[in-house]
Amino acid sequence: MEQLAALIAATLSAGTPLLLAGIGLLVNERSGVLNLGAEGMMLIAAAAGFAVGFHTGNPVAGLAAGALAGVLFSLIFSALAIGLATNQYATGLALTLFGAGLSAFAGLAYVGKSVPFKSTFEVPGLSALPFLGTAFFKLHPMVYLALALTGLVAWVLARTRAGLVIRAVGESPESAHAIGYPVRLIRVGAVAFGGACCGLAGAYLSLVYTPLWVEGMVAGRGWIALALTTFATWRPWRIALGAYLFGSVTMIQFALQAEGVEIASQLLSMLPYIATIVVLALISRNPAFIRLNMPASLGKPFHP
């Protein structure tokens, strides 16, 4: 039982960076912009967040710096893909290349350094509960923050005027423009939000999850987060579901290995990816389900 609780806790921690980045990219994509630069933004933010955390000794400052770095980096993307209507796929990929290189270069001085932050947390009162305490109430505040953010995004998109405008811009930028909305500005904002969330996710990796900086440390999580938005059919709570599903399958395959299950570890390592495909295939069978949600103008440039 205690082991199961620990597994749940580990899953929640592992899913958090994916959730953070995924929820940002969701807003990003709901406005009709596909930013394949997620990996690059996360790397830049991981380096910047670690550097600030290291110098200030303050993890909150580090996380904020990561988010800021993500925003700044996303502006490069916006300037090109939204301002100059360059191809979004190619621009995003070029940004990933750029971010990987820049973070490696800028972060060189921080390799081998560590940040002595508090690493255990307890929700007062609840952490002592049997089972539930270990499973849910001894996690880093960012885990809860990510969930709160998901709720906020779900509410804003579904219930507020701002959400309506973002969705309208993603569905039909031409009509939104005709009504008088500043389509490109709204898109820049949505991309910046995506950058901020990817930045938080990157800084979470370098400050909380594995408090260190080494180049390439995001190791493909930006790509997984991008895939999650599709998996979730652009719905916020399904991002959380996808992120935790992915996290749990990853943890379960490690747990199976630790228990000495005699299946080749490479085949076990495939599980998270295969599970994602299978679940996607199952939930996608109803075509209406996807079509209703996919932003119609996703990936297409717009110029007024």
Partner: peptide, 19 residues
């Protein structure tokens, strides 16, 4: 030059071409 710089340079060149 460090390998990281080549990533920066490659990214820059590609962004310039796209622009």
């Amino acid at each position: 030059l460090p390998a990281a710089i080549t990533g920066v340079f490659q990214g820059m060149l590609l962004l310039a071409l796209l622009t």
